[in-house]
Amino acid sequence: MTVNPYLPLPYRVIAVRQDTPDTATVELRPVGAAIPEPAPGQFTMLYMLGVGEAPISVSGAPIEGAPLAQTLRGVGAVSKAIIRLQPGEELGVRGPYGTIWPVAEADGHDVLFIAGGLGLAPLRPAVRHVLANRERYGRVSLLYGTRSPQDILYRDELAMWRRMLDVQIEVTVDRAHRSWHGAVGVVTELIPRAGVDPSRTIAMVCGPEIMMRFSVQALQAAGMPCEHIYVSMERSMKCGVGLCGRCQFGPDFVCKQGAVMRYDRIAHIFTVREI
């Protein structure tokens, strides 16, 4: 009998860590059977009884035995309900679904991560993977933009990465008061300053679509070929498994051919209105 792809597995909340005033990371463990180990860039469908289901990218470590970590901003009914869960409560998990950040393809290359806002969450497993296998990669840089200093995710981990002497971490915010001593400006402004060698760099870009559009523009202005740029797309999604038809982006289903997509695949429609 074929497995019903809509059926979640019960998972128990181990911890809820408040990352920012409206964003939290939930750590989950399976009650019984577990979903297969997610790869960097993949997402799951999280189900809250009586509320519904939402596609949420995995933000935890690709480490054996680590709890499943997912970061959510409380913007919709489902995400709001999930970040209010208490340890011990259960929710439904199915997946993992979708494509993977090109951590294998980037082997032997420089790696440039560009994250905007909550876009750091889906990128974190890839950053962790690259740093855990540091010897396989050339220069590694992370450019991260958020709305304000209080919206910066994973501060402790960013600080830890910054202490590594062979990783470039740049953080900028759109707006700040004088108490913020870091950069103020949009994340695209960091790109020309990062000094990347476009011919040997793989860029992984994740954030709101507008931010990704401008970032891709800046990367191309810096001479980076389309095949070196990867973005993570977002579209409406109810099933996550290619059956509900909602997440279509041109001929692709974001749940199947994405969310992580190589830019040359979608370049022809990336800036088309309402596609």
Partner: peptide, 26 residues
């Protein structure tokens, strides 16, 4: 045409629900 949506139909006691798939349209 095959597109669908999925809704939660909650039981009145709040302890149960049915996940219900419905035809939807682009």
């Amino acid at each position: 045409c095959f597109c669908t949506t999925i809704d939660d139909h909650s039981d009145l006691d709040g302890h149960g629900a049915a996940r219900v798939r419905r035809w939807d349209s682009c």
